[in-house]
Deep mutational scan, measured.
Amino acid sequence: DELVREILGRCTCPDQFPMIKVSEGKYRVGDSSLLIFVRVLRSHVMVRVGGGWDTLEHYLDKHDPCRC
């Protein structure tokens, strides 16, 4: 939770990309009902993408309208 909030807090946009914790390891992202699975691996916040894992920073770079 703290690492996810820290990464989201780096955004300086007036309207921050919403990530709402639904349950342990599950977050709702953006304005959709899309759920992502998150885990911490060796101090990196990882997001389940397709059949693999990606860093939360890279995921936000691709999906946050402010960072695109």
Rank of each mutant, 00 (worst) to 15 (best):
residue 38 V to W: 01
residue 42 R to Q: 13
residue 46 M to D: 01
residue 24 E to N: 11
residue 28 R to N: 02
residue 32 S to N: 12
residue 13 C to A: 00
residue 36 I to D: 02
residue 18 P to R: 13
residue 11 C to W: 00
residue 58 H to D: 11
residue 52 G to P: 04
residue 52 G to Y: 14
residue 10 R to E: 07
residue 15 D to V: 14
residue 67 R to C: 01
residue 30 G to C: 05
residue 40 V to I: 10
residue 65 P to I: 04
residue 12 T to P: 03
residue 10 R to N: 09
residue 14 P to A: 11
residue 31 D to R: 11
residue 60 L to K: 02
residue 39 R to E: 10
residue 47 V to Y: 07
residue 62 K to C: 09
residue 1 D to S: 09
residue 3 L to C: 11
residue 22 V to C: 07
residue 13 C to E: 03
residue 52 G to N: 12
residue 16 Q to F: 05
residue 26 K to Y: 12
residue 61 D to E: 14
residue 32 S to E: 13
residue 12 T to D: 03
residue 39 R to L: 07
residue 56 L to Q: 00
residue 50 G to Q: 12
residue 44 H to K: 13
residue 7 I to W: 03
residue 68 C to S: 15
residue 12 T to F: 02
residue 21 K to Y: 06
residue 58 H to F: 01
residue 49 V to C: 12
residue 14 P to H: 08
residue 40 V to P: 06
residue 33 S to V: 04
residue 36 I to P: 05
residue 27 Y to D: 00
residue 4 V to P: 03
residue 52 G to F: 12
residue 39 R to G: 09
residue 66 C to R: 03
residue 56 L to N: 02
residue 34 L to F: 11
residue 11 C to N: 00
residue 55 T to R: 11
residue 67 R to G: 00
residue 25 G to L: 01
residue 49 V to S: 12
residue 26 K to F: 13
residue 27 Y to A: 03
residue 4 V to L: 07
residue 68 C to K: 08
residue 22 V to P: 00
residue 45 V to T: 04
residue 37 F to I: 13
residue 17 F to I: 02
residue 40 V to A: 09
residue 34 L to V: 14
residue 6 E to M: 08
residue 15 D to P: 00
residue 39 R to P: 03
residue 15 D to L: 12
residue 14 P to K: 13
residue 67 R to H: 01
residue 25 G to W: 05
residue 2 E to Y: 12
residue 2 E to T: 13
residue 31 D to Q: 14
residue 48 R to P: 05
residue 29 V to I: 15
residue 30 G to E: 02
residue 57 E to V: 03
residue 15 D to R: 13
residue 64 D to K: 00
residue 22 V to L: 08
residue 15 D to E: 14
residue 52 G to C: 11
residue 50 G to A: 11
residue 36 I to W: 04
residue 34 L to Y: 12
residue 39 R to M: 10
residue 68 C to W: 12
residue 36 I to N: 04
residue 2 E to L: 13
residue 24 E to S: 09
residue 57 E to M: 01
residue 59 Y to G: 01
residue 31 D to K: 10
residue 56 L to Y: 03
residue 4 V to G: 00
residue 23 S to Y: 08
residue 42 R to W: 08
residue 34 L to P: 14
residue 48 R to L: 06
residue 51 G to N: 13
residue 6 E to Q: 11
residue 55 T to L: 10
residue 33 S to P: 13
residue 36 I to R: 05
residue 27 Y to C: 01
residue 30 G to H: 04
residue 11 C to T: 01
residue 30 G to T: 05
residue 5 R to C: 08
residue 24 E to L: 04
residue 43 S to H: 08
residue 58 H to E: 11
residue 31 D to F: 08
residue 35 L to N: 14
residue 35 L to G: 07
residue 16 Q to W: 08
residue 22 V to M: 09
residue 42 R to P: 07
residue 18 P to A: 07
residue 42 R to K: 15
residue 13 C to V: 08
residue 17 F to D: 00
residue 19 M to S: 01
residue 66 C to L: 01
residue 20 I to N: 11
residue 45 V to I: 11
residue 20 I to A: 09
residue 8 L to H: 06
residue 63 H to N: 11
residue 6 E to H: 06
residue 10 R to L: 06
residue 39 R to I: 08
residue 14 P to M: 06
residue 47 V to E: 00
residue 52 G to Q: 15
residue 20 I to L: 10
residue 38 V to F: 02
residue 41 L to Y: 14
residue 24 E to P: 09
residue 66 C to V: 00
residue 21 K to P: 04
residue 23 S to M: 06
residue 23 S to L: 02
residue 31 D to E: 13
residue 14 P to Y: 08
residue 58 H to W: 03
